[in-house]
Amino acid sequence: MIKIVTVCGAGVGSSMMLRVFTQQIIEAYNIEAEVEASDIGSVNANEYDIVITTSDFANVLRESTAKIVRIDNLMDKAYLKSELLSAINEL
């Protein structure tokens, strides 16, 4: 099972929205994955296969072993889908 985490500053705003969008994508493609949301201060990115976050936080997590999906337009579901599926294919 693929472990995915969405990350934002507080863990309640954009990360929750990204978690919902990510869940919709993996369900649509029948991908076995677990999606969590977290804040930048408490996430251990190395516990996940994929981290989805904005560029600001991606830079903080760049040392992580997880694949980082950067998304700055949170409403761009098509971009999220293509980047997420690409990251899953690389696993």
Rank of each mutant, 00 (worst) to 15 (best):
G9I: 05
N73V: 14
S38H: 02
E90Q: 15
K3P: 05
K3R: 14
T22I: 04
S86A: 12
V51Y: 01
L74Y: 13
V60D: 10
E36M: 08
G41E: 13
I25R: 04
L18Q: 00
I52Q: 09
E63H: 11
R70A: 10
I71D: 02
I4R: 13
S15A: 07
L80W: 02
T6F: 04
D49S: 00
V20R: 02
E47H: 01
E36I: 03
N30G: 09
M17L: 12
E90S: 13
R19A: 05
F57P: 02
A87Y: 14
L61Q: 03
L74N: 05
F57S: 10
E32C: 07
N89C: 08
A45Y: 01
S55N: 10
Q24D: 15
V69S: 02
M16R: 10
A87R: 01
N46C: 09
M16F: 14
I26T: 07
A37L: 02
R70E: 05
I50L: 15
E63I: 04
S15V: 08
V35H: 01
V51P: 03
T53A: 04
S64Q: 01
Q23M: 13
C8Q: 03
L80T: 02
E27C: 11
N44V: 10
F21S: 15
G41C: 12
A87N: 01
N30Q: 11
I52D: 04
N59M: 12
M1E: 07
D56W: 12
R19I: 03
I4S: 07
T54K: 14
T54G: 10
T22N: 06
C8L: 03
V43G: 02
I25D: 11
A66N: 03
Q23N: 11
D76S: 13
N89R: 07
N73Q: 15
I52F: 08
I71T: 14
T22F: 04
I4K: 08
A45F: 08
V43L: 03
D76F: 09
T65F: 07
A33H: 09
N89G: 15
S42G: 11
T54Q: 14
V12W: 05
I2A: 10
I26L: 04
F21I: 10
S38K: 06
A58L: 08
V35G: 06
I71H: 01
A87G: 05
L61P: 01
K81P: 04
E34P: 15
D56P: 15
S86W: 06
V20W: 06
T53H: 07
L91N: 06
K67V: 10
L85E: 01
N89Q: 09
V12E: 07
I4N: 11
I26N: 04
V7P: 00
G11V: 12
I71S: 01
T53P: 00
Y29F: 15
S64P: 06
Q23L: 12
G11D: 08
A45D: 13
F21N: 04
L74P: 00
K77A: 02
T53Q: 11
I25M: 14
R62G: 00
E36V: 11
